[in-house]
Nucleic acid binder design. Structure first.
Length: 255
DNA sequence: ATGGTGGATGGTCCA
């Protein structure tokens, strides 16, 4: 199985890139974030035309997630907690060939100390509670998406320049480590120890041109899947296209 | 150079 994750930053704008990338790489599963469309406007027909199915959970203007798959999906869920008024269309789950696929768009957090930052930390905490109560780390579980956290200094082009800022503050890294310690392995870091591998570059900083990258998109897998993960890599080619998403796809391949 | 761009939307909010 080949699985990828990609924050597309509006599926309406990015659908040509998305279709092209699926046709070129033929992953079995692609988890996307920031679709920014209500479910009635999700471009399901274009996805079916190239041999994929999709399940999706969107809202107007903001957030929105989807799982696109060639393989049958079942046991789909679109929230992970009891308080739907806080649900911002940031989570979708499906099971594929016995693997639990959790696709998450973790809140950005705005700036350290803001209300949105507190919401981000609270969201991480709720996600850990969900894992505790609803999933089993001895089984094949995969959690992927845009985490909006660079776990270590080597995941930032220049960590000293951004020390303590949102996406790399100690509290965010600790919140992410609590998720990981439930029973996950970082698939990308199984195969690559070096810095210089990033999934996101800020539009505002003209970050891609200036090589100012962050590794904030991740594929976390439980041990039973980690043993089968033969490769994980970042495809920066879509970030070079006209009107790119600010993120680029991350891929993991399993035996 | 202490700002920059981009998406959804229709004045701002979000990232």
């Amino acid at each position: 199985m080949i699985l990828a994750t990609w924050n597309v930053n509006s599926i309406s704008v990015r659908i040509p890139h998305l279709i092209s990338w699926l046709q070129q790489h033929q992953p079995d599963v692609l988890c996307i974030q920031e679709t920014k469309v209500e479910d009635t406007k999700f471009p399901i027909d274009k996805i079916r035309e190239i041999g994929y199915e999709a399940v999706f959970h969107g809202q107007k203007s903001y957030n929105g997630v989807a799982i696109i798959s060639k393989l049958p999906m079942d046991k789909v869920e679109k929230t992970f907690r009891e308080t739907p008024e806080l649900d911002q269309a940031r989570f979708i789950k499906a099971e594929i060939e016995g693997n639990v696929i959790l696709n998450a768009y973790i809140p950005n957090g705005s700036y350290v100390g803001s209300d949105k930052y507190e919401y981000k930390l609270e969201w991480f905490s709720a996600l850990r509670n969900y894992l505790n109560e609803n999933q089993d780390s001895s089984k094949p579980v995969l959690l992927c998406g845009d985490f909006n956290v660079a776990p270590e200094d080597r995941d930032i082009y220049n960590p000293d320049r951004h020390r303590g800022e949102v996406m790399c503050s100690e509290q965010e890294r600790e919140a992410l480590s609590v998720i990981r310690d439930w029973g996950f392995v970082d698939a990308f870091r199984m195969h690559e120890e070096q810095t210089g591998h990033f999934t996101w570059w800020d539009y505002r900083l003209l970050g891609f041109k200036r090589k100012m990258g962050f590794r904030i998109d991740h594929i976390y897998v439980t041990e039973s899947l980690a043993g089968k993960c033969k490769r994980s890599w970042i495809d920066i080619e879509p970030r070079k296209l006209d009107r790119p998403s600010d993120h680029t796809p991350l891929v993991a391949e399993f035996n």
